[in-house]
Amino acid sequence: MHLMNKILLYEIHNTIRNKWIIIYSFFFFFIGYALFAFSGDGSKAFISLMNIVLFIIPIVALVFGSIFLYNSREFIEMMLSQPIDRKSLFFGLYLGTALPLIFSWIIGITIPYFLFTVNYNNTEELILVIIIGSLLTIIFTAIAFLIALKQDDKSKGLAYSIFVWLILAILYDGLVLLIIYTFEDYPLDKFIIGLSIINPIDLGRIFFLIQFNISALMGYTGAIFQKFFGANLGIVISSFCMILWVILPVYLSLKLFGKKDF
């Protein structure tokens, strides 16, 4: 714990000076400005924001996380020649990447909210978007670490990262539709629920939409989710699955980091 905090502190120092982290912050600032200053209806702005968050955050966390780990290879070697255990070093590096990413976009989005909304009656939505976005950052940074630890070739690793994003963020919806269309004669409800559990981006979307009861925008998986579990149980189950999604890739990359030859 003690050693991890020391590494973490220096890693955060390093990461917040990274120009991409600053650009990331500005990106969300301008998105926030555009949405809050020009949209009359607060809820609508948040639905748009949620869609951007579900799209952008996973790819940024995947690409930034894997590049960061590839560039740290020699540094990890050097750190491991110091008296430090692998677990502390791993959590120092991992949180040193994920936390600045989280701070960066939260700052970016919160400033325009307080500057450009007239009456702050959507703070609840803002907090929910922040929670979902932060969970997605934590999950996808861990997946990025997992890929970068498993695959030593940097360009292959980056390709895998982008591929994971393509499947989960883009192809997934089409795939679900295709399955429903092809097997329309069969009872598919449970299968579709299973599908949404294996996609953290979809879980994030369901979580947000059930919370605000915007069933029209929920999409097929979201509607089934709510029908099947009801609103309350739906929220409990989707948050439980989200937490599993946080624990699993972190645990697996920690295991890999412990065994890896540097």
Binding site: K6, I7, Y10, F75, S81, I84
Partner: peptide, 27 residues
Amino acid sequence: IGYVPQVARYPENLTGNEILSLVKELR
């Protein structure tokens, strides 16, 4: 143990003094 690796690469936004004080804290 003191180790000099074949290729030296450090977090690009940190300075030598910062790395030195990090190592001081670890040892």
